[in-house]
Amino acid sequence: MLRSLQIEPEKCTGCLQCEMACSYEAEGVFNPSKSRIKIFTFHEEGRFVPYTCTQCSEAWCMHACPVEAIVINKATGAKEVIDDICVGCKVCTIACPFGTVNYNQDTGTVYKCDLCGGDPECAKACPTQAITYVDSDHGGLERMRAHAAKNLPQDSAQT
């Protein structure tokens, strides 16, 4: 079963534990500036929104890469960057409509979320379950359940 990162912004507090966990897994240091997942603060609106790669099926980044440095991990569905092949041309960063693949000036290659090989650290680190790792086919399950619960009689409604 493929799983996907599920993000529920209304639960996010902006603590950045996910950014630390992500960068520690990828870089061996706590370094939010190198995190594959980013938390955006919308001050006026009073909202925090996590954002990262959604692992498109027909991934723009993968198709755009001229040297085939971005490949599918069949076990996880993640589109992974092969550092040794990447030439740092940045075409993928232009092709990605969501901005979730980025260039790293220290290494001269690009980097993106690889789902940590199937055990994403961001989801484990999130203290409020704003980021979870769920069945790809049923990402809407909890939302459906919440709407379904509205049909219950008032006094027994549980959401």
């Binding site: 902006g14 603590c15 534990q17």
Partner: peptide, 19 residues
């Protein structure tokens, strides 16, 4: 109160965000 918020690294999240 719109929501609560956290400082960096905080798993308590006591900040008030208000209008």
């Amino acid at each position: 109160l719109t929501t609560n918020g956290a400082c960096f690294g905080c798993t308590i999240a006591c900040q008030r965000i208000s209008t």
